[in-house]
Simulated scan of single mutants.
Amino acid sequence: MKLGRFLTTLGIGALVGMLLAPKKGSELREELKGKGKETLDSAKEMTVEDYQKLISETIDSIKKTVDEFDVDDFKDSSLAKLNELKDKFDDVVTKLQDSDQYSKLKDQVDNVIV
């Protein structure tokens, strides 16, 4: 596992665990302060090479994601989902217009307008 992901996951897990634990506010703040200090200390122990490696891995991961992104595929899948949503919306509108409540409401609105 990459060091950055590990540290991030570890930090998030610790934070969620602390926030969900039944503690007084002062105890929670003290524990958060301690965990923050531990994280800072571990970050201080990382060497320049560790940071460079982490940054390089992150950049490589971003580049790979961008390179693998297929705009045409995204457009096609988005269009298909939009069309599916439109069809469902049209179906709901049709069912609504066919309902008795719609007719009554429409008649009431027409009476108010006239």
Rank of each mutant, 00 (worst) to 15 (best):
D91T: 10
D76M: 15
L79R: 15
D90P: 06
V92I: 13
D98E: 09
K81G: 07
D91G: 09
K88A: 04
K86W: 13
D90Q: 08
L85E: 11
K88R: 09
L79H: 14
N83W: 11
V92E: 06
L85C: 10
K81P: 06
Q97C: 03
V71N: 04
K75N: 11
A80H: 10
K81M: 12
D73H: 13
S77P: 07
V71L: 08
L85M: 15
K81V: 08
D90T: 06
F69V: 00
Q97T: 07
L85Y: 12
V93M: 01
D91M: 08
V92F: 13
F69T: 02
L96F: 13
V93P: 01
D73W: 09
L85I: 10
V92Y: 13
L96H: 09
D70Q: 00
V93R: 03
F69H: 01
V93Q: 00
K75D: 08
S77V: 04
A80I: 06
D73M: 12
K86G: 12
T94F: 06
S77A: 07
D98I: 01
L96D: 04
F74T: 03
N83H: 13
D73A: 15
D98V: 02
F74H: 01
K95A: 05
Q97W: 02
D70M: 00
S78I: 09
F69Q: 00
T94W: 06
D87E: 10
D90L: 12
D70G: 01
K75F: 12
K81Q: 08
K81H: 07
K95C: 01
L96Q: 09
